[in-house]
Design a protein around this nucleic acid. Sequence first.
DNA 1: ATCGTTTTTGAACAAAGTGTTTGTTATTAA
DNA 2: TTAATAACAAACACTTTGTTCAAAAACGAT
Lengths: 190, 190
Amino acid sequence: MDRRQQKTRAAIFAAFNEILTEKSYHQITVQEIIDRANVGRTTFYDHFETKDELLREMCDSLFRHIFSDVLSAESTHDFSLSDGTSRMVITHMIYHLRDNRKNLLGILACESGEMFLQFFRQYLNNVFSSYMPTSNAREVPEDFLLNHISGSFVNMVQWWLKGGMKESPEQLATYFEAVTQPILTQKEAE
Amino acid sequence: MDRRQQKTRAAIFAAFNEILTEKSYHQITVQEIIDRANVGRTTFYDHFETKDELLREMCDSLFRHIFSDVLSAESTHDFSLSDGTSRMVITHMIYHLRDNRKNLLGILACESGEMFLQFFRQYLNNVFSSYMPTSNAREVPEDFLLNHISGSFVNMVQWWLKGGMKESPEQLATYFEAVTQPILTQKEAE
DNA sequence: ATCGTTTTTGAACAAAGTGTTTGTTATTAA
DNA sequence: TTAATAACAAACACTTTGTTCAAAAACGAT
């Protein structure tokens, strides 16, 4: 990739990230982004078709980074959401989230980011679906449960960010276990 | 209130509702609303400062309607989220939601409505907080739990709407019970 | 039915944003 | 060095926003 392209993309991403900490996504204009990134209007539209695509690309790379070693760990060990081993994975994920708080806060914390949340949940559905214990003796459908678990995680992260991230990742993992474990294990002894 | 005002407000609300079923909130313009409602530009801004305020007012009246008898029932009977009596309340709420599906679908179903969801969760926090069983022997903080419960409900409704509302309110109440009951009752026997 | 008040209205407005085009200038990789 | 590629500024037509103003219409009360 051309060095100029790299620089342009980096500048746009950085500017976008910066502005996201100041105002909500929908209030941000392309004009603002290119002003802050110090690139020409034409250049922006050369790289991204719309503002939405910029967000999508940013979320994608962020997720890939956050879940990179979680997803690779999945192959070596055999984790499951329904036993204690999941706590490690969850803790890991939250540590990554905390490391990226500068990127996240702007997108997630305030009232904005419905698209980000959508992407987030979607991504989590994929991640969690491989950890779901297989049990057909449930009183709720599989996809409802998966949606519930992913939603609970996103919900928790949102709550955490809004409250100033006072809890440690280990603590959060415990909370998460406390609200998901009882549901997942209840019918396993069938 | 002046008859003209009533008519104007009704027309705007109706138009807004209608357009919400066609596109997401952020794509809707004031221009579109006043065209459809057939009112003057000036009139719109006489009634609502911004498009956001229109949404907020609409959500408010919708919630008040949906939860009206739920909130009044609260005073007569003594419900709690942690026992079987809650199922009635939940079922009731979902029936109301289904009756208002025309209003809800547009706002909630598609990718839009982050503000609506925010209002919804906020409202639910108030509703649920009075049903929360008091137990200080929990491994998770009270406000985390409340946030989790409200979030789970909103999450479920979203899942339900997206899936075409195939499940009956009773069934949904059972699902909700299945994912909240185990958490709320686990430490009650202290 | 009339009268003073309130509401609605259209037209026009500046300001800001969008996405595209065009020709020019820099930068790059070879 | 050179040919390709990327960035650029300027200008574009277009849409949206929120405000102002004076005139017309609808209203409630007498």
